[in-house]
Amino acid sequence: MKTLILKTASIYLLPVLLVFSVFILLRGHYLPGGGFVGGLIAAIAFVLHAFANGLSESKNLLKIHPGFLMPLGLALAFLSGVAPVIVDDPFMTGLWFPDPFPVIGNVGSALFFDIGVYLVVVGVTLTIIFTISESA
């Protein structure tokens, strides 16, 4: 499926889609979106790139095996849950910075949790798709 148009397009589409996925992730707390959808979109972006340019190309682009994103995301999500314990709140209590940040809005432990979800979803999806297309 290595058509020239798709190949050219995918090079530009990848960053656009990735930015879009991060945008979806960040706005998730206020508008439709969130870690799950964001992660899936990011994964689709990479899959598209892999379709157009070949798997090894996308892997080079990623630098690390997508599998490593899973423990990273899990750790982030878990830590954001544990963080409140340090300030003597029960596990998973939401902690928030008092003032909203520009662009992103309010920042709290829930956001980091969502980023963790995002990373896990990207990691899981890409691991599955990459392993399958490698062995297929």
Binding site: F36, L40, V121, V124, T125, I128, I132
Partner: peptide
């Protein structure tokens, strides 16, 4: 939402 995402895991594993 969670069910949809989990079902993807299930499907790929089953496949």
């Amino acid at each position: 939402l969670t069910a949809i995402v989990i079902s993807f895991g299930l499907q790929s594993f089953a496949i």
